[in-house]
C-alpha cells in the first residue's frame, strides 16, 4: 500500500509540530523518516496508525482512502493491515514475552496452539531472541524489548510496517541483523516499511526513500539525491558520508 500525507497541520497546545507537512511512502519500499529529536517522527507514525489525528490535512492510502476521517471501527479495520513497533516497545507487562507475541494470533486467527507456537518460534528466531519465552517484559533489557516489539509487529504479516526507532539501543551487530531482517521482510512480503531513525549509517544502508522533517515540513527523495541537493540533510548525514574516523586515523 502506498501512503501519502498531504498538508498535515498539527499543534500541541500552541506549539506547532507540523506546519503543512506533505510526504509519500511508496508502495513496497523502505522509507526512513529522519528528524532531530522532537521533530515529530513518532507523531507522524501515530497518525498513520490512527492513534492520533492531525488538526487538518489528509493521509491517503493508495490515493483514495483518507485515514484522518476514519471512524473508530474503520480505524480498527485499518490497523489489521498495520504492524507497529513502538519506540519503547509497549509490550504488555502482565504477559510473558511469548504470550505478548502470540496475542494477536490468539485474538484474530483460528490457528491451533501448536501452529501459533511455530509462528512465534519463527519470528523470535528472525529477531534473534531465544530462550526468553517465559520472561516478563520487565525482566528484559531495552534492546530485547525492542526486538520483542518487532516480533509482535511482524507476527500478523502486516502490509504496512511502522517501526519507531528500531535501531536505537542495539549493539552494532544486532543493528545489522535488524536491518537485514527489515529488508528481508520488505522483499519477501512486499510490505511498505516506514522506519524512523536518527541513525545515519543505517538510514543510508536501507532507505529506498528518505523523508527529512524539519521545522514542521518535510523534504523527500532518494537518500543520494537529497544529500546532494539539501544542505540540511547533508549536515544531518555527515557522519555516514565522511570516511570513518578509524580509517582516517590509520591513513
Amino acid at each position: 500500500m502506498e501512503i501519502e500525507a498531504r498538508d498535515l497541520q498539527f499543534s500541541r497546545g500552541d506549539r506547532p509540530i507540523f506546519r503543512g507537512l506533505s510526504c509519500r511512502f511508496p508502495r513496497g519500499k523502505i522509507s526512513v523518516v529522519a528528524a532531530a529529536s522532537g521533530g515529530g517522527k513518532t507523531t507522524l507514525l501515530r497518525m498513520i496508525a490512527c492513534l492520533l489525528r492531525p488538526d487538518s490535512g489528509a493521509i491517503l492510502v493508495d490515493g483514495t482512502r483518507d485515514l484522518v476521517s476514519l471512524s473508530r471501527a474503520e480505524s480498527d479495520a485499518w490497523r489489521h493491515h498495520v504492524g507497529m513497533l513502538f519506540q519503547f516497545g509497549a509490550l504488555l507487562d502482565m504477559l510473558t514475552l511469548y504470550d505478548n507475541v502470540a496475542l494477536p494470533l490468539r485474538e484474530h486467527s483460528k490457528l491451533t496452539e501448536a501452529e501459533i507456537h511455530d509462528e512465534v518460534r519463527r519470528v523470535f528466531e528472525a529477531v534473534g531472541l531465544e530462550g526468553v519465552d517465559q520472561l516478563l517484559p520487565g525482566e528484559l533489557s531495552g534492546g530485547m524489548v525492542k526486538r520483542a516489539g518487532l516480533a509482535r509487529a511482524l507476527i500478523e504479516k502486516p502490509e504496512v510496517l511502522l517501526c519507531d526507532e528500531p535501531f536505537s539501543g542495539l549493539d552494532p551487530p544486532t543493528v545489522r541483523k535488524v536491518e537485514e531482517l527489515l529488508q528481508a521482510v520488505n522483499e519477501r512480503t512486499g510490505a511498505t516499511v516506514v522506519i524512523t531513525s536518527h541513525h545515519p549509517l543505517s538510514t543510508m544502508r536501507i532507505a529506498d526513500h528518505l523523508v527529512m522533517i524539519g521545522e514542521g515540513r518535510a523534504v523527500e527523495g532518494t537518500p543520494q539525491t537529497l544529500v546532494r541537493e539539501d544542505a540540511r540533510v547533508a549536515d544531518f548525514f555527515e557522519e555516514a558520508l565522511s570516511p570513518p574516523a578509524v580509517a582516517r586515523g590509520a591513513s
Binding site: D76, R79, M84, A90, L92, P104, E107
Partner: peptide
C-alpha cells in the same frame, strides 16, 4: 499502561 503506551499497543493489534 496508558503512560507506557501498552493500551495503544493493544489497539495496534486490533485488541
Amino acid at each position: 499502561m496508558v503512560v507506557t503506551e501498552q493500551l495503544d499497543g493493544l489497539r495496534m493489534m486490533s485488541v
